[in-house]
Computed example of a mutant assay.
Amino acid sequence: MPLFEVETTSHIMIACAEDQEAARAFANTNYPTEEIIRVAHRPRDAWVISKKLLGIQGDADPCHIARDCLAKAAGDKLHAVRLYMQSTGADLDGARKAVESNMSRGW
């Protein structure tokens, strides 16, 4: 089944769907309040994200580090961001993104 990239106002999702209409239906079912900005057919049957493009290099796992900082901070986001910056040397924006993305997954 083909892959479709569906971008909404807040998310980019990859969906296996028969066609663009089915991909739109998937997005509307899961995120009904968001406007669909773009639907694109992926040329292959795989989705690849460049770790280097995201700033992930070497053996460091930013998700593991962010979850550890959240645990040490007892869920206090600001404290976890500070701990993440100290642990990784990341700037404020990078640390905030790492911590917030892990807060939404649950730590």
Rank of each mutant, 00 (worst) to 15 (best):
M1A: 03
P2I: 00
P2Y: 01
P2G: 00
P2N: 01
L3S: 01
L3Y: 03
L3P: 04
L3D: 01
F4I: 02
E5H: 05
E5Y: 04
E5G: 05
V6D: 03
E7A: 13
T8N: 08
T8E: 10
T9I: 08
T9L: 11
S10H: 12
S10C: 06
H11W: 14
I12E: 12
I12P: 02
I12Q: 13
M13Y: 08
I14S: 03
A15K: 08
A17T: 03
E18S: 14
D19N: 15
D19M: 07
E21S: 14
E21R: 14
E21T: 13
E21F: 12
A22C: 10
R24C: 06
R24D: 03
R24Q: 09
A25D: 14
A25W: 07
F26M: 08
F26D: 04
F26C: 10
A27Q: 03
N28K: 15
T29P: 02
T29M: 09
T29N: 11
N30L: 12
N30S: 09
Y31W: 11
P32F: 05
P32V: 08
T33A: 14
E34C: 05
E35Y: 07
I37P: 00
I37M: 11
I37R: 13
I37H: 08
R38N: 14
R38Y: 05
V39R: 06
A40K: 15
A40E: 15
H41D: 11
H41F: 11
R42P: 03
R42T: 12
R44H: 14
A46F: 13
W47T: 13
I49S: 13
I49Y: 10
S50C: 15
S50R: 12
K51D: 14
K52F: 12
I56F: 03
Q57W: 05
Q57T: 09
G58E: 04
G58K: 02
D59T: 09
D59H: 05
D59V: 07
D59Q: 07
D59F: 03
A60H: 07
P62N: 02
C63V: 06
C63G: 14
H64L: 06
I65G: 00
I65R: 00
A66E: 00
A66Y: 00
A66H: 01
R67S: 01
R67N: 00
D68S: 02
C69T: 01
L70I: 01
A71K: 06
A71D: 09
K72D: 04
A73L: 02
A73H: 01
A73E: 04
A74T: 09
G75S: 02
K77F: 01
L78R: 03
H79W: 04
A80G: 01
A80R: 00
V81H: 02
L83H: 03
Y84D: 00
M85Y: 05
S87P: 00
T88K: 05
G89R: 04
A90H: 05
A90F: 04
D93Q: 15
G94K: 10
G94E: 10
G94Y: 07
A95I: 05
A95E: 02
A95P: 06
A95W: 03
R96S: 05
K97P: 01
K97F: 04
K97G: 01
A98H: 02
V99I: 15
S101H: 11
S101G: 08
N102C: 13
N102T: 06
N102S: 06
M103Q: 07
R105L: 11
G106K: 07
G106R: 07
G106N: 09
G106Q: 07
G106P: 08
W107E: 06
